[in-house]
């Protein structure tokens, strides 16, 4: 029987990779961070379908976290695969951006406050002597 290399044996004995989050993630900003536990290199895959049939690789390497940003609204699924091929349970992320109406309303208020501040400074004290 051929000898099994120590690293491969250790990897085979290690538990499958798993995400640190125990519940599905949600984001109202389009960014989030994936954290995971794994004993070696992993492949992180991202999919839009729950069965991961459209999965694509978004990271491959030894890190234990990946920052994601700029995601459009919708549902995303992530999975991990280690060197032995062992897979994690998929992690669900729901991105639901803040209300655009609220954002535009607050931006308009910000603009008015800013313009008023500029006006006070540049108008100066000339009518207040």
């Amino acid at each position: 029987m051929p000898a099994i290399p120590a690293a491969a044996a250790a990897a085979a004995a290690a538990p499958p990779p798993s995400f640190s989050a125990s519940a599905p993630l949600s984001s109202d900003t389009g960014y989030t961070r994936l954290d995971w536990n794994a004993s070696g290199d992993v492949v992180v895959e991202q999919a839009r379908k729950a069965d991961l049939s459209d999965a694509r690789t978004i990271y491959e390497g030894p890190n234990h976290a990946l920052f994601l940003s700029g995601l459009g609204g919708g549902t995303y699924y992530f999975s991990l695969r280690d060197e032995t091929g062992a897979r994690s349970a998929p992690l669900k992320l729901t991105v639901s951006h803040q209300s655009l109406t609220q954002a535009l309303f607050l931006t308009a208020i910000g603009f008015l406050v800013f313009i008023a501040t500029v006006a006070v400074i540049f108008r100066g004290a000339r009518d207040d002597q």
Partner: peptide, 8 residues
Amino acid sequence: PAAIMAIF
């Protein structure tokens, strides 16, 4: 939305 709120 979050980005345009961040400007002002």
